[in-house]
Amino acid sequence: MAERSAAAARRPATAAASLLSIGQVLAKLSPEFPDLTPSKLRFLEERQLIAPSRTESGYRKFSPTDVDRLRFVLTMQRDHYLPLKVIRGYLDELDAGRTPSLPLGGAVPAPSMLATERRYSRDELVREAGATSALLGDAVTASLIAPSETYGDDALQVLRSLVELQRSGIEPRHLRGFRAAAERELGLIESALIPVSRRNDPSSRARAAELAVEIAGQLEIVRSSLIRSALGRLQS
């Protein structure tokens, strides 16, 4: 504790002022990651994915680098379904000064290089995707994109794909079954999480959230394999 106090005393006032509390971190990242909670922050710290500093009273304080690292971890979980042990291995390699790769088809930018997700208005989303307002409306009606005041990069990617599919004669209404399939997968995930979810404590809830992402990733692998296999039969 004495060493920590000495380090805090040597820290420049500007650096100390830039440190954020848990509440401030949640306020900063919740627009991008609505499921982020204090329990999940503590869980990620327990798994040694983040290492915030502590005040003399024991309160966690997060630097801008900590926030970048946290955003990276959450992005890899949400967008690429990577298990925490894989993300931690990558970060350990990065901390050691190496240039590691994740199983994403290439190198991944360091946490500090990840930009905050941009938000798009309806008109901006349509313009960026090269779509029409009618196509976006059809996508919302078909439950392929959730209605919202603003949209993120995920919605942009979906709408861009729908533009390309439309050129091949595939309309959003043809994809209504995708939502039903997603709901069935969600049911499988929820059933698998029952043993963990029954333990209603912060650590178990965080573990359930991590396990849900891992299961979704495994289901995605099976689905992609089935599609590739079907395409192979079609081409032959």
Rank of each mutant, 00 (worst) to 15 (best):
K28I: 00
F43H: 12
A7Y: 06
A2C: 05
S148M: 07
S191I: 00
M76P: 13
V213I: 12
A2Y: 00
V196H: 01
D153L: 13
P109S: 10
D35I: 07
G58L: 06
L231P: 00
S133V: 04
A208K: 02
H80K: 09
L162E: 13
D79M: 04
Y59I: 09
M113A: 14
V222I: 15
E56Q: 10
V196T: 10
Q48A: 09
D138M: 04
G106E: 13
P100G: 06
V158E: 06
A6D: 08
L211R: 04
P109A: 13
P103G: 11
S143C: 02
Q48H: 10
R98T: 13
A16R: 15
R98G: 03
R173K: 12
R54Q: 12
R122L: 09
R10Y: 00
R119T: 08
L125I: 10
R173Q: 13
Q24K: 14
D201H: 01
A96D: 11
A13Q: 14
A6M: 02
S229V: 03
S112A: 13
P147V: 14
E3A: 14
P109C: 10
H174M: 06
R71E: 11
L165G: 07
V158G: 08
K28V: 07
L156Y: 11
R118H: 11
Q157N: 06
K28Q: 15
A17T: 02
R10G: 04
L82K: 07
S63F: 08
A206H: 05
R184M: 14
S168K: 09
T116P: 01
A216G: 09
F43N: 00
D79V: 13
E149I: 12
L186E: 09
V108A: 03
A129P: 00
I145G: 02
N200E: 07
M113K: 14
A182C: 12
T65E: 15
E220H: 03
V25M: 04
E56H: 05
V222D: 08
T55F: 11
D68H: 15
Q157G: 11
V140R: 01
R4V: 09
P38W: 04
T37K: 03
S101F: 01
A146G: 10
L114V: 14
R54S: 13
A8T: 05
P109Y: 08
Y120K: 10
L135R: 09
R199I: 07
P83S: 08
L186G: 06
D35T: 11
G23H: 05
Y81V: 01
S121G: 13
E185I: 04
M113Y: 07
T75E: 11
A9L: 08
I145V: 15
E220D: 15
R205I: 01
P202F: 04
A181I: 04
S5C: 08
T14C: 00
L49R: 06
S112Q: 10
P109R: 06
T14V: 12
A8N: 08
S18T: 11
S225K: 11
A2I: 14
V222L: 14
A230Y: 03
L226N: 01
D79S: 10
Q24E: 15
V163A: 14
K28G: 06
V67Y: 07
L135C: 05
